[in-house]
Design a binder for these strands. Sequence first.
DNA 1: GATGAATGAGCTTTCATTCAT
DNA 2: CATGAATGAAAGCTCATTCAT
Lengths: 206, 206, 206, 206
Amino acid sequence: MQVLKEELRDKIIQKAIKEFMEHGFEKASLRKIVREAGTTIGNFYNYFKSKEDVFYAITTPVYDSVIHLMKNHSENDELDLEAYKNMNFKVLKQFIVGFFKNYIRDYGDIFVILIDGSKGTRYVNMKEDLLTLMTEHFQEHLDETPSWDKSLFHKDLPSIIAAGFLEGILEILRGDRSGEEKEGLLVEYILLYAFGVIKMLDGMKA
Amino acid sequence: MQVLKEELRDKIIQKAIKEFMEHGFEKASLRKIVREAGTTIGNFYNYFKSKEDVFYAITTPVYDSVIHLMKNHSENDELDLEAYKNMNFKVLKQFIVGFFKNYIRDYGDIFVILIDGSKGTRYVNMKEDLLTLMTEHFQEHLDETPSWDKSLFHKDLPSIIAAGFLEGILEILRGDRSGEEKEGLLVEYILLYAFGVIKMLDGMKA
Amino acid sequence: MQVLKEELRDKIIQKAIKEFMEHGFEKASLRKIVREAGTTIGNFYNYFKSKEDVFYAITTPVYDSVIHLMKNHSENDELDLEAYKNMNFKVLKQFIVGFFKNYIRDYGDIFVILIDGSKGTRYVNMKEDLLTLMTEHFQEHLDETPSWDKSLFHKDLPSIIAAGFLEGILEILRGDRSGEEKEGLLVEYILLYAFGVIKMLDGMKA
Amino acid sequence: MQVLKEELRDKIIQKAIKEFMEHGFEKASLRKIVREAGTTIGNFYNYFKSKEDVFYAITTPVYDSVIHLMKNHSENDELDLEAYKNMNFKVLKQFIVGFFKNYIRDYGDIFVILIDGSKGTRYVNMKEDLLTLMTEHFQEHLDETPSWDKSLFHKDLPSIIAAGFLEGILEILRGDRSGEEKEGLLVEYILLYAFGVIKMLDGMKA
DNA sequence: GATGAATGAGCTTTCATTCAT
DNA sequence: CATGAATGAAAGCTCATTCAT
């Protein structure tokens, strides 16, 4: 007995995360995962029931957490409304940083897997669902914005913007920067969008 | 019952485009393509030399076209500079519409394949290359913008924004709207970004 | 109608001979044959019923001829017996040359196909049969030779020598020399063996 | 029912040797090999990486051994020179027997595969290389023989004889005799050639 | 006569999964 | 706990042959 049970389980999970990030669930090779984890195919099945099983062991906590976050978003939202309206850059930054604290460095990779590589699993629709929610939320903000003139734009434009916005976030998460750097970038990126939308609309009125 | 050569060839190509869009080059199943096209594996090889061969038959014209577009971009760029500076929405819109005319309805799907599903082919790097160019180009615009203060942002932020921007475009192209609708959306989306960046920066100065 | 019927038939046969020589019947590619003959798969089947059919069209005349030669060999054999016994090099050479006249340049390639590449056809056993005959014939000569002491050698040695002898002939036929050169080489080679065997046995008596 | 690893691996190798001997590398059917070995295609790949892999597993040791033998041939050659000159049949026989001891029964089949069936592998040229060496070596012996008159014969005759000689060896190896019998035959065959050449030349002087 | 589209069986290889040891 | 042998389905591809045009 060379490696303790939990140790090996963790190692498999780590290598699985790496493989899922690189190739997504479907193209991920179990053989490669176990080889990198220093064990065998057979033994893998002592720890997990299937390829799907590792996938869910890895992703479900993050999935649930994201779902929970999204559901309770409106409440959290109130908090920063004032700062947002006044465009208080500093306050918002601090708020967002606090919000993401430790979240990204723990869950960032797995979030990417969920969005990018969940084809073939029960989480396939996550990106779509997330985008729907983001679009709704974004829409609400727009509706409260006086400068926003619905009739000028295609009704799907908000969902397109949401998709672009989300991709930026993923791009940050996918990069091999440190957790800290990722957080910094993320905040800047989010603020850019937040202010950008408002100002943009002002600009296009004419 | 025999089908005319060109008819079947086109059908194979159509089904291949569909399959490549859904699964990318590597995971695309030839058997599925031919089944949907109503023929057999063996017959497929009367029309194309290999899986790669169909892929390139489909993508190369679009690839070349995009490359050509990117190389000659700077020249085209000059044209709209005036309108852009003055934020003349109408003029710009017309210009962009003219630019994309017929382009999207013909090449949109294939462009998506090139960006999303070219792993395993010689076009793998297309997304990366395109993003590099977009980032450079975007950077240039920023450097000419007085309100842009480099020191305030992470050096990679522009490339993140470019990635988000590109994803929005892909999202439009991926949707099952009519070609006309896609063009409309695309123009709105591009303008939104164009003006957004300027205004956004103004907003963040404070 | 570009090519006359017989002309194309001949061309197919020529290219088939080339392909059969290079790869044997089984590995020979019909597609390559027709491509090189400047026609199509479909048209091939207007001239021949199958891959086997061309093979037999090419080989059967030679096969029959060789069989006939072998059956009537004993008669021909008498002719040179005197010269052989007296080791009259010149006379034998002329005799052999006369015997092979035009035979090699017409049938050499096809003979090689029959021996080397007939696997998968009804002529598979030709090499074996030929070797059996050659061995028998060779055995007869030996039995008439006083210096030959059966008990000294393995009973299969003659058949082995026959196999080696035949291979030399094939090697000559396979080379890309002119027909004339091949004939010359062949005669030298045959004489070498004829005299060699006699002298060899004398030498090994001790 | 499971079979021990080594047992099956050996069985696969044995059946592969059989298949390679019968059809050569290219036409050998993996399906047939595994069927005869009593396993499945899938399982084959637990033992070997590819069809090439089994081929090299089988042939490389023999290939290396033959190469080594050929390189060191000149040294070994000296030993028997005296006996050869004096045509001492007994001594030579013993020498050759010692030289091949155990070699043939272990490697004979595989040697045949290397010479006859290596098309499509990195050992394709082995027959050619071997013949070149044999011809060179044979040529040297001839040049030392006073009765040999170059001008009388075609320059390629030695290489033809070498080819015939090699084929005899292969014919012995291909037969389904016992290892011991093969060795005996081989020795007789080699000596026959050794003495034959000398005597033959003497005979043809006239 | 000529074309090449169509077929189906064969090929080697990869894979996730099961299970005897 | 661990091993890796075994399985079977699917992958991309080649081939000789048939047949509608």
